[in-house]
């Protein structure tokens, strides 16, 4: 099995694709499909990816770095809080069939994700892959299990 940095980076790419598919459905007016795809994306990122990070990876980093108030994980946790609200607002825009609002939110969310993911991929995951005894494989298993369970 791959190390945690490779697994998490792959999950970022998978989630980006899901969000892109939902956006495409919005652009073609397929509102029901867009709502379904956004929910698949939301479940994957909030209940899978973020959950593993907040329950396992961030605490592991903070434990190694000597405290739970580290600027890196504080910033990443804040990013998660902001994103959760944006995902709710995107779902509401789809419910209202409001493509203009959805596109505005999508632009902001994609910018946040690009910066957030880059920070994790350059500063967090490589550190944990090197620092954890199993190179993060246990946490990686949870991500891979979630990917398998993702509804189509």
């Amino acid at each position: 099995m791959a190390d945690i940095d490779q697994i998490m980076q792959h999950d970022h790419e998978r989630l980006d694709q899901l969000l892109g598919q939902s956006a495409h459905a919005v652009s073609t007016g397929a509102w029901q499909e867009a709502a379904h795809l956004l929910e698949v994306f939301r479940h994957g990122i909030v209940d899978g990816h973020m959950m593993v990070e907040e329950s396992t990876l961030f605490p592991a980093f903070e434990h190694k770095e000597g405290g739970d108030d580290h600027p890196l994980t504080a910033l990443l946790r804040k990013g998660h809080r902001d994103l959760r609200i944006f995902f709710e607002e995107m779902a509401e825009a789809i419910q209202d069939q409001d493509a203009e609002t959805f596109d505005d939110l999508l632009s902001t969310v994609q910018t946040i994700l690009k910066q957030h993911d880059a920070k994790e991929e350059t500063e967090l995951y490589p550190y944990l892959a090197a620092a954890l005894p199993d190179r993060g494989k246990a946490a990686g298993k949870r991500i891979l299990a979630d990917e398998t369970e993702t509804p189509s």
């Binding site: 902001t108 910018t111 910066q115």
Partner: peptide, 16 residues
Amino acid sequence: AGRHVATLESGKWAGG
């Protein structure tokens, strides 16, 4: 409560 009244973007950051 808790919803965004605005979104802001810079070259390096975006948020509500």
